[in-house]
Design a protein around this nucleic acid. Sequence first.
DNA 1: TCAAAAGTGTTAATAGTACACCCATGA
DNA 2: TCATGGGTGTACTATTAACACTTTTGA
Lengths: 238, 238
Amino acid sequence: MFNNINLTSYLEMAKGIYAGTPQFYVAVDCIIFAYENNEIQVLLQKRKIEPFIGEQTLLGGFVGADESLDDAAHRVLLERTGMKNVFLEQVETFGEIDRDPGGRVISTAYYALLNKKLHNTKLIQKYGCQWVSLKELPHLHFDHGKMLVKALKLLRDRIGYTPVAMNLLPSEFTLTQLQHVYEGILGVELDKRNFRKRLKEMPYFAETGKKDKSFSKRAASLYSFDWEMYRQLKYYHL
Amino acid sequence: MFNNINLTSYLEMAKGIYAGTPQFYVAVDCIIFAYENNEIQVLLQKRKIEPFIGEQTLLGGFVGADESLDDAAHRVLLERTGMKNVFLEQVETFGEIDRDPGGRVISTAYYALLNKKLHNTKLIQKYGCQWVSLKELPHLHFDHGKMLVKALKLLRDRIGYTPVAMNLLPSEFTLTQLQHVYEGILGVELDKRNFRKRLKEMPYFAETGKKDKSFSKRAASLYSFDWEMYRQLKYYHL
DNA sequence: TCAAAAGTGTTAATAGTACACCCATGA
DNA sequence: TCATGGGTGTACTATTAACACTTTTGA
């Protein structure tokens, strides 16, 4: 077995012109956000190795030799949730020497936003994953706590001037749902009238004409977001 | 020589519990900003290897085996400019498979802000580095152009609500200098009266009582920034 | 009939923007 | 004396924040 590894490593090194330069394991860790029951949730999984075996951690994985960082993050998402084309944005790369007890590992954190209705619930059970409310997060070991805090800060920033919230909702949604997404991410309550007034000024939010009765007795209008119109207006305004 | 490399790599791998997992070269690239002559400048160096030998690139270096990512960036700064404790912030990590023609290299971009008066001009000559105006940047190869654009975007964001601009100036500065720093980074002209009005509302900007005549016939007041007061007020407001 | 969520405008306060002239001094 | 950068205040506009009641309908 070690002979094999040696050979592989020898070939890898011979390919590069940087022979002699130290090499590192590279991983990605994903902070996966979703919205359900009027709250923001994060997907965590049970750690399978010591130390802290059985405790909850972020979903991660090593980057493959023929895989970009972004591809690795998308692969982790696909493996664990069955979803492709999930919204992902890089948060930060963590490179402290002793950050991983198993060896020298550099890890890039990504946050993901997904429509929870579309994920594969059997797959996450198979991987020992569970959704945890953002308000009831457990203590996360290593630098995973820092990763989550940074991811949330970045998301709070982004939601202020980009329509990332759309990634957490179905293509048709009520304004109350949308407001709950904003409140859950920002951690504050918003004024309903001011919230709706601002949306009305954005032409890429459009009533579909359909109604939803699943959340209230009086039906709520369903809205959709026109990405194409958003892009055109955005670039026009520059 | 190859035997040596093979042995090193074997020992490295045997240490970790992730044997068999691919490893990567990890580098840092620094976008180093400074202010002089009413403009923002970036430090570039001449590339010493093919392809594009002799053309200008960002300052970079490989991360050492016993060095964190942040430490590697600080080391690159120290090597090239002779400066310690330079302001550094991580921008983003670039991990495309073919981003470096010499091998599979993951690179984390950092931006740095330094007081140009304090750097070692002989050292940068020795390394083949030169300061280039932000308005006259050459084409940068590989993903270095993207790195610079991202760094500048991040800096433009930060300057809007943090006092990062102070890192580009001496401890005592005139309001005109400060305004030029903002204008250089944001790429727009600002109204002098509005700019000064806002500063007057911030108690951590204080007149030192001293005057500077080197830039004008009529002396300009020198100001200083009180970091301690800034931190206290900032946390108090949360 | 009542509980629960949907929907709707106005006013006040704050923040941001536009704008022009006199001052001090060294060359 | 004049060219150069230093220094100052006000009016207008846009944005944001505060605030309460009526509607619909299923249980």
